[in-house]
Design a protein around this nucleic acid. Structure first.
Length: 808
RNA sequence: GCCGGAGUGGCGGAAUUGGUAGACGCCCGGGACUUAAAAUCCUGUGUUCCAAAAGAACGUGCCGGUUCGACUCCGGUCUCCGGCACCA
């Protein structure tokens, strides 16, 4: 009997498909389990090994959950809107819908070839009008609640994609997707008020079972900071409001700075004596890219405004006002109070411009650098009524003071900005809004959804930075749903993140044409019990979808506050040698090739055995062969299995231990050690011989990892006939804690903390017997000779340690 | 700079309420089978000392501490990876 995986694997895949073995049924008496993986973008390259790791992991988890008696929903779909498809369509003159359709077929075939137990009947496709109807519907609800708005503002513009980007999509000044420079551009954009949910997006993390680094990264990204706003009066009568987290240092203010974009500058044009200089500085700042402007450690630059000064409300003293690009318009108020004694940026600026530096917290040497507290031990000086207080005392005291004096108030700020939601591209969901000269922006009535993406003659980008849809005059020109007059459709489309912000809800009820999903289905399946995905989505998809879900909860459209109960994340698969896989390095591993050479079961087993699931791991062809060898050994063992029900005496303890270990390891995502345990068990079976009873449980434990070959062996050895079901339909094996213990225990024997030997004793020996046996070990005796045992440390089942001193 | 994470054999990695460091696998050496090779099976494999065995010393980035006993705890320090970055 040969292990012919090329024949076996398609056989079982077909059976699972035909019999709908893994179809999820809403309702029933079993507890439910909703396992989710991030749906793929169906690119032309097909599935890569980076998909196989998280997909195999959740497949293993879900297969085990079914055997644990859960009603499991494990769905898959395609996140198919997006630029690569559009670019491919432009280049090859094929409709993006056709490209998408072909790519999806290829992906599905690859996913099935890996034996994933998805419920393929629940597939979703974000580009399907029946799907994006509801993406558009959610947008309209956001608009109705005032959470979607159109605003003209400087936005991130990718010079290569010719399209705006959300802040989350800009990484170190370049486009997250293509790496091209990002510049600032004034543009009218649809925005979503994610900032309105900033507090809840942070606070509600506490109740979630997310891995810690995800929580921390989201918190840092949202960037909540508690501080105060303080009003300074300008000598021309205007008010300069600043935001600060260190209101205790108000007495140390020696100057003010405003951002070059601040509206006051224009307003003050006639009062600023050196306006030419200021204007030139503004122009220079505007010319700089984001990247140049935020470059680290660069010299501080700026211009002092002549003719206007500010008055420190705490001291009544006048201080100069500067304009400098180290102050950002998008955070706080765009004006900052300069406290050079206790802020390094202010210290650098003051030093460069020869401004006074006042010490208001004792403890550092402000002639050398700003003194920034590491703890709250510093004592206030030169600060009027704050003198003598610690910083910790001074902050609330000052907050209270400014409040009472009427020139300040407590204030919380966030780094998070509203979400730039429109894209000037074709292959996305049309935004269902109409602009009427009389009525302004008018939403499309819900009964007109979906607003179909029209066919265009050309997907080529326009030179003016508008969507290709803008050239479709027949489509653009419409009537106002409100007044019936002439109106124009919005021609921007939604970003790729739109469809993925709610797809997990659609899986619960994928064909519903009355709602995103039925209440019944959502009540039953919500929330997602376990969601595994990449760290790269932490501040993008994962944050966006939490925001949308919270909004949907607020309007009563979903039953839970949070979409995902548990979030885990996997490490990247690197190429052989530890380098990132890339076409240019020529180290890309194609899963199809691995399946052809070794079979899907080997691919699955290896990708789980490769290393710690949460850490990056390098591919190794040799290690793949090792996993194939392991499966071969399992296969060949079948012929050696002797008749016999139940577990053989020789293997019983090892089997109980293995069940326990494999069960715990799968639940804890320690897949590599689960497989190591199975390898060791197989080694035991070869050494001790095994019965069919032993072998049967091995097949069950291995089934989640290597579902095809175990199913084949299950059938061949008659277990299918005996049990009346497939291996994957069996109950997960149980273990007996008392039987995980061996009959004998190996005890380590130490003298003075150093290992001097081991002793094998019956597991039920008493301490005295073990210690006597330990002393009798020849090498131990050697080290006890001429010594007096002053203390014996006995760790039951583990070790005996004799503490000695020179003596008798 | 700030926030996370990680440093263990030739390699991937195991082991933490402190208790036999190196499970499992890869690579490599020796042997069996074979005309031969592949495959398979058996066997060895942290370093050093010793002809070898027995055994000993050393060994989890580095320095120090606590302890009968430290990969694990504490203090300090270096390096690497990921995220954020003039956020006032």
């Amino acid at each position: 009997m040969k292990y012919d995986f090329a024949k076996i694997e398609p056989k079982w895949q077909k059976k699972w498909r035909d019999e709908k073995t893994f179809a999820a049924v809403t309702g029933g008496s079993k507890p439910k389990f909703y396992g989710l993986v991030e749906f793929p973008y169906p690119s032309g390259q097909g599935l890569h090994v980076g998909h196989a790791r998280p997909y195999t992991a959740m497949d293993v988890v879900c297969r085990k959950k079914r055997m644990d008696g859960y009603n499991v929903l494990f769905p898959i779909g395609y996140d198919a809107f997006g630029l690569p498809t559009e670019n491919y369509a432009i280049k090859n003159h094929i409709h993006p819908a056709k490209v998408t359709h072909d790519n999806i077929d290829h992906f599905r075939q690859q996913l099935q070839a890996l034996g994933y137990s998805f419920d393929y009947d629940r597939e979703v496709n974000t580009t399907d009008p029946a799907y994006y109807k509801w993406t558009q519907w959610i947008f309209l609800q956001l608009w109705k609640k005032g959470l979607a708005y159109k605003a003209t503002m400087p936005v991130n513009w990718c010079t290569s994609c010719k399209c705006v980007l959300a802040n989350e999509e800009v990484v170190e000044g370049v486009c997250e997707r293509c790496g091209s420079p990002v510049i600032r551009k004034e543009k009218s954009q649809w925005m979503l008020k994610i900032t309105q949910y900033a507090d809840r997006l942070i606070d509600d993390l506490d109740g979630l079972d997310f891995i810690e680094r995800v929580k921390i990264q989201q918190k840092n990204w949202i960037g909540r900071s508690e501080g105060a706003e303080i009003d300074f009066q300008a000598t021309n009568g205007d008010t300069l409001t600043v935001y600060t987290t260190r209101c205790d240092t108000l007495f140390g203010v020696t100057y003010m700075v405003m951002s070059p974009e601040h509206a006051y500058l224009k307003k003050w044009k006639d009062q600023i004596k050196n306006w030419d200089e200021v204007e030139a500085y503004q122009a220079e700042a505007a010319r700089k890219s984001d990247f140049e402007r935020s470059e680290l450690n660069k010299d501080k630059t700026g211009v002092r405004l002549e003719g206007i000064e500010a008055v420190n409300p705490a001291t009544g003293k006048q201080v100069p006002i500067f304009v400098s690009d180290y102050v950002l318009m998008g955070y706080g108020t765009g004006i900052v109070m300069g406290v050079p004694g206790h802020d390094q940026r202010d210290w650098d600026f003051a030093t460069k411009f020869g401004l006074p530096i006042i010490e208001v917290v004792k403890g550092g040497d402000i002639t050398k650098e700003a003194f920034i507290l590491k703890d709250d031990t510093g004592i206030m000086v030169n600060s009027g009524f704050l003198n003598g207080m610690t910083v910790k005392q001074a902050i609330p005291a000052m907050k209270q003071h400014v409040q009472e004096a009427g020139y300040g108030r407590s204030k919380t700020n966030f780094k998070l900005r509203d979400w730039v939601f429109s894209r000037q591209r074709y292959w996305g969901e049309p935004i269902p809004m109409v602009k009427c000269d009389k009525c302004g922006w008018v939403p499309l009535p819900e009964d007109q959804l979906p607003l179909l993406l029209p066919d265009v003659e050309s997907y080529e980008l326009t030179d003016d930075g508008e969507s290709p849809l803008s050239k479709m005059t027949d489509w653009v020109n419409t009537t106002c749903p409100c007044c019936g007059g002439p109106a124009k459709r919005e021609t921007d489309t939604m970003p790729q993140w739109a469809g993925s912000s709610w797809y997990f809800l659609r899986y619960m009820d994928p064909n519903n044409d009355k709602a995103i999903a039925s209440k019944e289905a959502m009540d039953y399946w919500s929330p997602v019990d376990w969601y595994n995905g990449g760290m790269e989505h932490t501040t993008l998809h994962l944050l966006y979808s939490r925001f949308w879900h919270k909004f949907l909860y607020d309007i009563g459209a979903v039953p839970t506050k949070e979409p995902y109960a548990k979030r885990t994340s996997h490490g990247m698969i690197l190429g052989e040698g530890g380098e990132k896989m890339s076409k240019s390095r020529g180290n890309v591993v194609n899963p199809d090739d691995v399946i052809a050479a070794y079979g899907a079961d080997t691919m699955r087993t290896y990708i789980m055995f490769i290393g710690d699931f949460e850490k990056a791991a390098a591919w190794s062809d040799n290690a793949v062969k090792g996993c194939k060898r392991f499966l071969d050994r399992v296969w060949n063992l079948a012929e050696q299995a002797k008749d016999g029900e139940g577990y053989s005496a020789a293997n019983e303890s090892a089997i109980h231990k293995a069940i326990k270990k494999v069960s715990d390891d799968i639940d804890a995502m320690k897949f590599n050690t689960a497989i190591a345990t199975l390898m060791a068990l197989v080694n035991d079976f070869y050494a001790n011989g095994c019965t069919k009873g032993d072998y049967q449980v091995l097949l069950q434990l291995l089934n989640p990892f290597a579902p095809h070959m175990t199913e084949e062996l299950w059938e061949t050895l008659g277990f299918a006939a005996k049990e009346g079901k497939m291996a994957c339909q069996m109950a997960w094996p149980a273990y007996d804690e008392s039987k995980t213990l061996s009959a004998t225990a190996t005890i380590a024997v130490q003298v003075g903390g150093k290992l001097r030997g081991t002793v094998e004793v019956p597991a039920d020996s008493d301490n005295a017997a073990i210690e006597a046996a330990a002393k009798a070990v020849p090498n131990v005796q050697k080290f006890l000779t001429g010594m007096e045992v002053i203390k014996t440390i006995h760790v039951p089942g583990k070790l005996v340690n004799f503490i000695v001193k020179p003596g008798k």
